[in-house]
């Protein structure tokens, strides 16, 4: 199916891009790798009047080990992150997550900026124009007055969209304490990545129409720390996560007790879900099987998926949250031990 028609601009500078976006009267969309947006446009889920290609903007593709932090340009392809020796060694969760996105072709085209801004997914929403001829309109697709067809709210109540955030790198980055730099009409700002997500499936990404993510920064991990990312999907390639778990753990060099721990779940809600209990359970303690079990239990509780993916039930995804959390913790500990 052909793409819908749109006006196209390819600015050479960030300022120009922001200006174009802020001047756009109708819907404008930023395109970088295009692996998410082009499919949405072919399915006529998104039909922007203007597409602004930011790939031509120089200086947004880099992986730099700066003072106390890793800096990744927003246009850096996922495959570069997956292959970066530095990231593989110091930020294994991020390398794993980047390498777990889609298929090699998606990772070659797709950028880190695009992956963290991935649109949410739901079997009822990610469908074709023909599907929409056969079924009532979806709330995420339609107007604010349209009802969610899978989980309709009671009369008089505000609609909610529960579509699933299905990015791989975001949970890893959040577990690693990442921040992002955003350029907008009012200038530049830096926010914790976790604030990028609204939790509202209809408008999942907290960016203003003329905002562009320009950089991701991750604090350098302390000594005696590591991270891991585990993903469940039916096939080992192409598929989006049905569950993702990112874990980052730092141990005290002397005592071996846990200094910091972070567990973040993907694909269980409209945003990445931080298992805040995890640090409470582990901090200051020697990590035992029993404690890992408790964190798994906490992940189980924190995961509240709904029946909006075709491949498996929410109960199963919840159950996997526990199993994979435990495995991811063990994997991170294993790396620390072997270092």
């Amino acid at each position: 199916m052909s793409l819908p028609k749109f006006d196209y601009q390819a600015p050479q500078t960030l300022d120009e891009a922001v200006l174009l976006l802020s001047k756009a009267k109708k819907d404008a969309k930023v395109i970088a790798g295009g692996t998410d947006l082009v499919v949405a446009m072919k399915q006529r889920r998104i039909t922007p009047a203007l597409v602004v290609n930011i790939k031509g903007i120089k200086g947004l593709e880099y992986i730099k080990n700066g003072k106390g932090e890793l800096r990744i340009g927003a246009l850096t392809p996922l495959s570069s992150i997956e292959e970066s020796e530095l990231i593989r060694e110091k930020f294994p969760a991020l390398a794993k997550a980047a390498g777990a996105v889609g298929a090699p072709q998606h990772r070659n085209a797709g950028t880190i900026g695009g992956n963290i801004c991935l649109n949410t997914r739901c079997w009822y929403y990610n469908q074709s124009p023909f599907f929409r001829k056969c079924r009532p309109v979806c709330y995420k697709f339609g107007s604010d007055k349209d009802k969610c067809q899978l989980f309709p709210t009671r009369e008089g109540k505000a609609n909610v969209c529960y579509s699933v955030f299905s990015g791989d790198t975001a949970p890893a980055l959040i577990a690693l304490g990442a921040k992002i730099k955003i350029k907008g009409p009012e200038g530049e700002k830096t926010i914790p990545l976790t604030e990028l997500y609204t939790g509202d499936g209809k408008r999942p990404i907290a960016l203003a129409p003329a905002d562009i993510v320009t950089e991701v920064t991750v604090p350098s991990p302390p000594e005696n720390s590591s991270s891991a990312y585990m993903k469940y999907r039916v096939r080992e390639a192409i598929d989006f996560p049905l569950l993702g778990v990112a874990v980052s753990i730092a141990l005290d060099a002397g005592s071996g007790t846990c200094k910091n721990a972070s567990v973040v779940l993907g694909a269980v809600a409209s945003r990445p879900v931080e298992v805040t209990e995890a640090e409470k359970i582990l901090k200051g303690k020697k990590i035992t099987e029993d404690l890992i079990e408790q964190v798994g239990e906490a992940a189980f509780k924190a995961a509240k998926p709904l029946a909006n993916l075709l491949e498996c039930s929410p109960q199963y995804r919840k159950r996997l949250a526990k199993v994979f959390t435990k495995r991811a913790i063990k994997s991170a500990l294993e790396i620390i031990k072997s270092a």
Binding site: W123, S128, C134, R235, E236, A237, D239, L310
Partner: peptide, 27 residues
């Protein structure tokens, strides 16, 4: 292990290669 045309009242819900899954080289 994985293939199945999922239907809702006669409407096939997984008509794409993303949703109708058959094995890649890795499986």
């Amino acid at each position: 292990l994985m293939e199945e045309l999922v239907m809702d009242k006669g409407l096939v819900l997984n008509s794409s290669f993303l949703d109708y899954k058959f094995p890649t080289a890795l499986e």
